[in-house]
């Protein structure tokens, strides 16, 4: 598993993918952070995290697009699948590598929070508010959970196709749809449909964290979704052998 993980990490940095991912992510996040906090003259970062969700939809497919589709195209999957390594370990190695790349971005983007503390803002009533770091760290944690799910979904889609381009487009579409369900859910009148759609909703579970509340149910939800898609990816490889 470590071998696969190391090779993946190496490959992110010897091809353009890793750099594109880091550059695009940090640029988008940095710009968005500036716009939502400094330019608004506020240390309230709630809006930033909502935008960050949307940014994840754009950047994570870059990370996951080639996890498996590239291997199939170049037939290197034959090496991995005929080596004495369980499929589970191979998939986990790849998953963890993509997750590590994502964590690099999250950790680097946390540098954004530092100037915020020097940015205590006087409100209209003359009282100063210092940034709510419990809320900020809670939201960051929630972002990491959502990232876990998105990476698992992206990796699963990549395992279904040989075409990187298809992988990135489909992943983008699926992740965007997941986000849209959350946003447009409130417009649906039927409560039954709303309840079902709500189950898929990434956003509604995210909400508690932005208030600094620790939502244990949401934690379980996110970990389960990530787990299900990692499991499905493993199944794709096992099932493909029987085709």
């Amino acid at each position: 598993m470590l071998a696969v993980f190391k090779r993946e990490m190496r490959s992110y940095f010897t091809t353009a993918t890793g750099y594109i991912f880091l550059a695009v992510s940090l640029a988008l996040l940095g710009a968005m952070f500036g716009v939502t906090t400094f330019l608004q003259a506020t240390s309230e970062a709630g809006t930033y995290f909502l935008f960050m969700l949307a940014i994840l939809v754009i950047i994570l497919p870059i990370l996951t697009m080639k996890t498996f589709s590239e291997e199939r195209r170049t037939k290197t999957d034959q090496l991995l699948l005929t080596a004495p390594v369980p499929v589970t370990k191979m998939v986990l190695g790849k998953y963890l590598a993509a997750f590590a790349m994502f964590m690099i971005v999250v950790l680097l983007s946390m540098l954004n929070y530092i100037p915020l503390s020097a940015y205590a803002v006087e409100d209209a009533y003359g009282s100063t508010s210092s940034p709510n770091f419990v809320m900020i760290l809670g939201s960051t944690f929630a972002i990491i959970l959502v990232g876990m799910c998105f990476i698992a979904i992206g990796m699963f889609i990549s395992s279904l196709t040989e075409n990187q381009f298809a992988a990135i487009v489909i992943t983008l579409g699926v992740l965007a749809a997941l986000l849209c369900i959350s946003i447009f859910n409130s417009f649906i009148s039927s409560s039954a449909v709303r309840a079902i759609l709500d189950w898929f909703s990434v956003y509604s579970r995210f909400y508690n964290f932005t208030y600094g509340l620790f939502d244990f149910g949401a934690l379980i939800y996110y970990i389960s979704v990530a787990g299900v898609f990692v499991f499905l990816t493993i199944r794709v490889f096992i099932a493909r052998r029987f085709r």
Binding site: R7, R10, S11, T14, T15, T74, K75, T76, D77, Q78, L79, T82
Partner: peptide
């Protein structure tokens, strides 16, 4: 050794 050698060409 499969028909197409499974090489990672970026290594």
């Amino acid at each position: 050794l499969p028909e197409q050698p499974p090489l990672y060409v970026d290594m």
